[in-house]
Nucleic acid binder design. Structure first.
Length: 403
DNA sequence: TCTGGGGTCCTAGGACCC
DNA sequence: TCTGGGGTCCTAGGACCC
């Protein structure tokens, strides 16, 4: 083990009030005024609106009550995607080690640049200037030894700020902060901690790991204990592909026609399956999401034996799960329906190529023989009865691997 | 305060296998 | 007759993030 010098070389770059800032950039009349992007609910609020109490996910009526001169504009997602692309281009110009977190924030590892570029704090300042000059948007950057600390630093420095946490000042920075500012502590955990009289990160740091695990469970307890003592990964994670694809739709208060709900669900299935195919992936698990008039939620899922990319398979399962949820829907009243695809695999690996009626074991063997005769025996990598008796899938290796 | 749409990760019980 | 444990998958729910 060599002692690496402890350096603050992770940047967390986070665009401020992103959607609202794009609107203010593109329409000078909105600058300096409280702006909310959205309609029924607030998707994003400018800082002028936030200072008056307007928050993301707040209902439009309540937002106007808090801030009567609020300017509400409809979202323009194409403009946000384009602005994001331009900002990420600057990120990648800064360092190859970029971990996108969402449309408006990313971690950048600049540790490898110490011989060829200026110090991390100066890189962060330059990055902020470039985003402002080239894209016209304010961005806050936190700089620290770990992504966790950089993230907390950018939260503290918002809006339009820059904060560096030197490695030997980490505890002095972190421990006075309220627990709500810790990344990973949401309403439930913060409420639980405050219920025990723990209001700051320092209060939490005074607890043993054992006590914290007892309070919050193993994962959250270990994680929180580690981060308040400065133990967190020092690395960004690049090149990770997404694990699920989903879409949902609020239906409004019912009652809703059965045919209307089914049509809405099929529309969502079509959308996610298009995205699935565009990503060259298949899915093994379909999850139906439901939300009810009393704001309770339910999920119902089904896993295929093999990945599928076809809308027909997904639609059949989604409708079956919806039918099975009939009693719940009638009892509580449906207000939202969604579908999510997970267990995503590369579509080069699993391709069902044969389907038989009334499948049984001998049918499976015949199918395997048929595929082996046509593509060669090494082409058959997996074969089994599809769940639900829909047929038989014989996946092939990717092109070129089966010969 | 009556709530949009897109995600990630963890927990926990039961089935099933060795 | 009484007695194990470990691992993985599936399903459902929940916390958290932006």
């Amino acid at each position: 083990m060599t002692d690496q010098p402890r350096r603050a070389a992770i940047l967390h770059a986070d665009l401020d009030a992103f959607y609202a800032a794009v609107e203010q950039r593109d329409d000078p009349r909105l600058r300096g005024r409280p702006v909310a992007v959205g309609g029924g609910v607030v998707l994003a609020a400018s800082y002028e609106a936030k200072w008056r109490g307007v928050q993301t996910a707040m209902g439009g009526r309540q937002a106007r009550a808090l801030c009567p001169d609020l300017v509400v504009v409809p979202p323009r997602f194409d403009a946000y995607v384009e602005a994001s692309r331009a900002v990420f281009e600057i990120f990648h110009r800064t360092t190859p080690q970029v971990q996108g977190v969402s449309i408006d924030e990313a971690f950048l590892d600049v540790a490898g640049l110490h011989r060829i570029d200026v110090a991390p704090a100066a890189i962060a300042a330059r990055l902020r200037a470039q985003v402002r000059d080239e894209v016209g948007l304010p961005i806050t950057v936190g700089v620290a030894r770990t992504p966790f600390l950089a993230k907390v630093a950018s939260r503290v420095a918002k809006p339009d700020g820059l904060m560096v946490v030197p490695p030997d000042e980490e505890d002095a920075f972190l421990h006075p902060l309220p627990v709500e500012l810790l990344w990973g502590v949401g309403d439930v955990t913060a409420g639980r901690l405050r219920g025990y009289g723990l209001t700051t990160a320092g209060d939490v740091a005074a607890l043993s790991q054992q006590v914290l695990v007892g309070l919050l469970g193993p994962a959250a307890g270990h994680h929180l204990h580690a981060v308040v003592h400065g133990r967190a990964s020092e690395h960004v994670v690049t090149g990770r592909s997404r694990g699920s694809i989903g879409a949902q739709r609020a239906l409004g208060r019912g009652p809703h026609d059965d045919a209307f709900v089914r049509a809405a669900l099929l529309g969502l299935v079509d959308r996610v399956c298009r995205r699935l195919r565009a990503a060259h992936r298949t899915t093994r698990t379909v999850t139906l999401r439901l939300r009810f008039a009393d704001y309770t939620r339910a999920t119902r899922s089904h896993s295929f034996r093999h990945g599928t990319g076809t809308g027909r398979d997904v639609a059949a399962v989604a409708l079956r799960l919806l039918d099975a949820s009939g009693p719940l829907v009638r009892e509580r009243g449906l207000t939202l329906v969604g579908v999510a695809l997970s267990g995503l695999e590369s579509d080069a690996v699993v391709q069902p190529v044969l389907e038989l009626d009334a499948p049984d074991r001998s049918g499976l063997d015949q199918a395997v023989d048929a595929v082996a005769a046509r593509f060669g025996s090494r082409a058959v990598t997996r074969a089994s009865l599809l769940s639900g008796g829909e047929g038989i899938a014989v996946p092939l290796l990717p092109d070129g691997d089966g010969t």
